[in-house]
């Protein structure tokens, strides 16, 4: 059972629709106590880093998530802000702490090309560093996904970055650290390629169950 985490932000509905489309078994998690009954988590995110960081701490999500994902090693998929929250620190609306599961910082996008608008909005190609593993299984070396963000994940170690996209400079598109995944793009809104990512996550979750 995948827990769809609802911290009061984000486009839960779109992600739920996508989970349903790939026939994943999921339940919404409206409070930290709901996490224990799930074997994996998806955290969608629309909103600002500071706001989300506060919600995580104040509403008790932080401790519960650390317990479930860090201690019990349950798989996690963060989408957009949910991916950025994996970082150590975020600099959107001030400085706030993230989950620190993938060391790094969340910095504003600053493309050198003045023609490029902020937010980075629309479909862009993602180049995967590895093929046939993790979330990009079956997608080959690159695929097109929908992005909408003004901040980017700058990982401390390159090995956690599994895919990049180009927007003035290289932007982290997806990250991975053992059983923790994150996508800057919106797989739930990226048609076939996006649904493949969600399906891959669901398979990874079920595969862990079997062994």
């Amino acid at each position: 059972m995948i827990g769809l985490i609802d911290i009061g932000l984000g486009n839960q509905r779109s992600v739920a629709n996508a989970l349903e489309a790939v026939e994943a078994v999921y339940r919404p998690c409206l409070q930290p106590e709901d996490l224990a009954s799930c074997s994996a988590f998806v955290l969608p995110g629309v909103g600002s880093f500071a706001d989300a960081s506060q919600r995580l701490t104040r509403q008790g999500w932080l401790m519960a998530l650390n317990q479930e994902v860090q201690d019990k090693q349950k798989p996690y998929l963060g989408i957009c802000l949910g991916m950025q929250l994996l970082a150590t620190t975020g600099f959107e609306n001030g400085t706030s702490p993230g989950l620190n599961w993938i060391p790094g910082e969340v910095q504003p996008l600053a493309p050198r090309d003045p023609e490029l608008t902020i937010p980075h909005m629309g479909w862009n190609d993602v180049l995967f560093h590895e093929m046939e593993t993790g979330l990009s299984k079956g997608l080959g070396t690159s695929a097109c996904f929908y992005f909408m963000h003004s901040f980017q994940f700058c990982a401390e170690t390159a090995k956690h970055v599994k895919g990049i996209t180009e927007y003035g400079s290289q932007v982290t598109a997806c990250v991975e650290n053992h059983h923790i995944w994150g996508a800057q793009f919106h797989p739930e809104k990226s048609q076939g390629a996006g649904l493949s990512v969600i399906r891959n996550f669901n398979h990874l979750v079920s595969a862990r169950h079997e062994c």
């Binding site: 509905r13 779109s14 629709n17 996508a18 349903e20 489309a21 929908y146 909408m148 919106h186 739930e188 809104k189 990226s190 048609q191 996006g194 649904l195």
Partner: peptide, 12 residues
Amino acid sequence: LENLSLKCFMPL
């Protein structure tokens, strides 16, 4: 909106 989002895997 709720009904149509079920079939909408593109940004809405």
